[in-house]
């Protein structure tokens, strides 16, 4: 987190570059704390990946941003306003796609798309029809006949066809097939090019890696990591395997070297990415026969935080 350039929300001028700012936000249900001092900042115009295990508080966070749930403590600013008090004017400027879309059984998909977009302030018919074609949806079917993936498409099309500044997407592609996933990624890139801000809560790591400028990882109601993907990689460990006949005592004493084991003629260890230059210098004094270094995948980053340790 220290590697972030903090955007100070003080003063109107600075506000203009921040889309979402949450400080020390607490939301409790009775004794259970859904959010426990959450800090989240999303800059305008960025696609922000929002990752975390089930029940970590992703949906709660988004619903607080929507003014559907009220937080107990902390400050929340959405596009410079309080989302609870200014819910209606703010909702004209954003669109939301829930992870579980429920449609009215008697309304067709086309009617639901139009309804949501109109209630938001208007629908661009040309774009709506383009998206319907791109996502291959039959808008004449009744809500009760749609599969989960098709219901998801209805909410997505309605959100994407609205002319808004901010998209709040809560696992928006759960239930979509890989072909539609590709269409979705194109649409999000297009939205980014148009200058929209996107908060993308997701379980699909490839999607986040492909789309997100920055990523926040939430666990048990707190943000445990924020930054660009390369910054996050920097914070974590690189897996290193060295072919070396004899031991290097200096390595086991070095800071930043973990889990050092020998297996035949190979040494395995993981290294803090920040300490790599020093480790390389130490290794350079020995007759290294081979060396492989694997940078951490997003999956490893996540598993590190999803796991129970700490």
């Amino acid at each position: 987190m220290s590697t972030l350039t903090r955007i100070r929300p003080e003063g109107r001028g600075a506000n203009a570059s921040v889309a979402i700012s949450m400080r020390d936000v607490v939301k409790s249900y009775g004794r259970a704390r859904a959010l426990d001092g959450l800090d989240l900042e999303v800059a305008r115009g960025e696609v922000h990946g929002f990752l975390g295990p089930n029940g970590a508080g992703k949906s709660t966070t988004i619903r607080i941003l929507l003014g559907i749930l009220r937080h107990n403590a902390g400050t929340v600013r959405l596009l410079g306003e309080d989302p609870w008090a200014k819910a209606v004017p703010l909702h004209r400027r954003l669109a939301y796609v829930p992870g579980d879309v429920e449609l009215w059984p008697g309304l067709t998909g086309g009617e639901a798309i139009d309804l949501f977009a109109r209630l938001r302030g208007g629908v661009d018919r040309r774009r709506r029809d383009e998206f319907i074609e791109a996502f291959d949806l039959d808008p004449r079917k009744k809500g009760r006949t749609y599969s989960k993936g098709n219901r998801q498409k209805v909410a997505l099309i309605s959100a994407l066809a609205s002319d808004v500044e901010l998209l709040l997407l809560d696992e928006p592609t759960a239930g979509l097939d890989p072909l539609m996933e590709a269409v979705f990624q194109d649409c999000i890139r297009e939205a980014k090019d148009a200058g929209r801000t996107v908060l993308l809560s997701s379980h699909i790591l490839a999607q986040v890696e492909a789309l997100a400028d920055r990523v926040s990882i939430i666990r048990s109601g707190r943000i445990v990591e924020t930054g660009t993907l390369s910054e996050l990689r920097h914070l974590s460990r690189t897996t290193i395997t060295v072919g070396l006949e004899h031991d290097v005592p200096a390595l086991s004493e070095m800071a930043g070297v973990h889990d050092l084991v020998r297996e035949g003629s190979r040494l395995h260890f993981s290294a803090d990415t920040a300490q790599l230059p020093q480790i390389m210098r130490v290794l350079g004094e020995h007759d290294v026969e081979s060396l492989t270094a694997t940078p951490p995948t997003l999956e490893q980053l996540l598993l590190r935080h999803y796991g129970k340790e700490e």
Partner: peptide, 23 residues
């Protein structure tokens, strides 16, 4: 087979009152 419905919403369906009435 389930009958197909309208592809576009009628103008009635553009306010909360219209939705409540429709439902």
């Amino acid at each position: 087979a389930e009958r197909l419905g309208r592809a576009h919403a009628s103008s009635m369906l553009s306010s909360p009152l219209g939705l409540a009435l429709r439902l």
